[in-house]
Nucleic acid binder design. Structure first.
Lengths: 342, 342
DNA sequence: ATGAAAGCGCTAACAT
DNA sequence: ATGTTAGCGCTTTCAT
């Protein structure tokens, strides 16, 4: 059996409560006894039983994190940020993956909420009304989503798109394609509308080539539509899609950035390593994760359930080699190429 | 306050113990009362408090999973398999990421072991002696590692390599490069030695181009060495590295598979979507995750701490377009190409 | 088959 | 400043 608070109390010659205080609220005990207790605890290798503590404090010391797809590097970065912040605050985190399924999302949220003090719901796909309504037993912080009445951490997607458009416009592009992500993604919506506004403001023609799964294959599938669109530049919902796009453009023999410039979003690690390296709107993933944890913990600290803090983090365009000066015409299109798989 | 067993007991007009039995060991109570209790529980939305239950049973209902790097799609697949199996058995899982750091690994294992019934340590990088020695409070199952005295789930890496070599040999390749993964990776060691044996047996010359981080950039870095090696085919430690390789080969203007054939390992989703699609040794990731959970749970069930079950899963070569007939000579090498970044 | 009672390890009043 | 006591919600003897 593991060593309990009682063993420590006996070893130190004090009562259980003193041990409890010496360990949790050191200020409340005499320095001498405190040290004696701490020494005994250390010597015996005492580790408080979290279940027992939780039973009385009503806190589990656990956080939940729900993401649409762990295999998307964007989310694994967020996970790492959350993990780090949680560990620093002596909390553990349950991670769940919804496989992009909005229904699973709410179910998981309900299930998790029994076992954690609070949950971070990252890039939820469920509709606003559901998110506003879910009755759960613990705190909830949204990430990459703004819903009235719910605290949340977001990034300035619209400004990222503005930067991207400004960059492409400066390079002479006048017709830009957009490969959208899931319709149910708030980030996609934000990016799409931000893009639209910026394009209008700069007199750029925007071609919406459709909604695609936010995965490599989404980009591959979109590639041919992008080529057919006649655009000289394309902005993808995220880097994973942009990389799929790069792959398909390569297969079709279209060279980047000579014939088409490509811009991604998120700045996942791999995007700096592709050929060519991907120009992308960088999102502070770790920081967003940390911010969400901080918000959750502060919510738990001052338990006035009414506050719904919001925090928006900046985005930053990273200019790399996948974007370049616009080609003078689109004469290259339609020329059969060696790499073509058709 | 949440609804407790006491509320259910009152509502059903029975004692707490009866409620407990009706819910946990339905066989022990009268069918009539059982239904009454279950109805009451359902009506009140009763959810047993896991902390309270854990306090008495000594089980938390939680599992731990430690992986080297969540952003590697291989591990996110494993995670998904583990999650699914755990959920099916009504367990939650704590996931931790070591960032490929062997020291963090053991620390995390110790920390986790206090809060879970058992832990799956996936692809550990720590040395055998440490793994054999760690004294922890809960069960441990290794994955992708075989250590005496520890239960584990592995895959037949050597056979996968044998299949790959046989495939390449049949295509006429006589000189094969190998891009190794981390020296501390057991899988790498298995793949390397399996490869060596198969190459010898088939009279193939094997060129070891060095050890690389198991990431996209590892493959990029290895690319030039592979080209310089004079090999007509290359086998990479895993798919992520192989994809980095593909990228670098493309940048250097070396065409795959015409000039060099490329084989990966793991069969991550993306590998079927690259250009060209990647021939790879498929590893049953989900199944391995499920198997590890099953092993862990069975270990927990019959708590005779002595048994150390081992399970090995098969691997399967997936032949795709990145491998082809060996070029007749290596005259292509050194020719400057448009794609070169040098 | 059911109930009463003890207690898992801990913290939080309440005493001293 | 420290000790005593009473539970947190549940399972599990032990009675009945």
């Amino acid at each position: 059996m593991a060593v309990t608070i009682r063993d420590v109390a006996e070893a130190a010659g004090v009562s259980q409560s003193t041990v409890s205080r010496a360990l949790s609220m050191p200020g409340l005990v005499n320095a001498a006894t405190r040290e004696r207790v701490q020494a005994a605890a250390r010597e015996l290798g005492y580790q408080p039983n979290r279940a027992a503590r939780g039973l009385i404090t009503g806190r589990t010391g656990n956080l939940g994190l729900i993401v649409p797809d762990l295999s998307n590097p964007f989310f694994s970065s967020v996970v790492k940020g959350v993990q780090a912040a949680a560990r620093a605050a002596d909390h553990s985190v349950f991670i769940a993956d919804t496989d992009e399924d909005a229904d699973v999302e709410v179910d998981l949220l309900r299930a998790l909420s029994k076992q954690v003090d609070g949950t971070i719901l990252c890039s939820p796909r469920a509709p606003d009304v559901e998110l506003a309504a879910v009755g759960i037993d613990s705190a909830l912080v949204l990430m990459n989503r703004r819903v009235d009445g719910r605290p949340g951490v977001t990034v300035d997607n619209a400004d990222g798109m503005r930067q991207a458009v400004a960059h492409l416009a400066a390079l002479g592009h006048r017709r830009i394609a957009f490969v959208a992500g899931p319709r149910t993604s708030w980030s996609n919506e934000q990016r799409e509308s931000g893009l639209q506004r910026s394009a209008e403001a700069s007199g750029i023609e925007l071609v919406h080539v459709g909604y695609f799964p936010p995965q490599f294959e989404g980009g591959v599938a979109a590639g041919d539509l992008v080529i057919a669109s006649g655009a000289t530049a394309v902005i993808a919902y995220n880097d994973v899609v942009a990389i799929g796009l790069l792959s398909r453009l390569g297969a079709r023999g279209v060279s980047v950035p000579e014939q088409i410039s490509v811009v991604g979003c998120d700045d996942i690690g791999m995007s700096a390593m592709t050929h060519p390296p991907l120009t992308t709107v960088s999102v502070p993933k770790h920081e967003a994760g940390r911010a969400a944890v901080a918000m959750l913990l502060s919510l738990l600290a001052d338990n006035d359930g009414a506050s719904t803090p919001q925090r928006e983090l900046p985005t930053q365009l990273m200019v790399r080699a996948s974007t370049g000066v616009a080609p003078e015409s689109d004469r290259f299109r339609g020329r059969p190429t060696k790499g073509s798989t058709q």
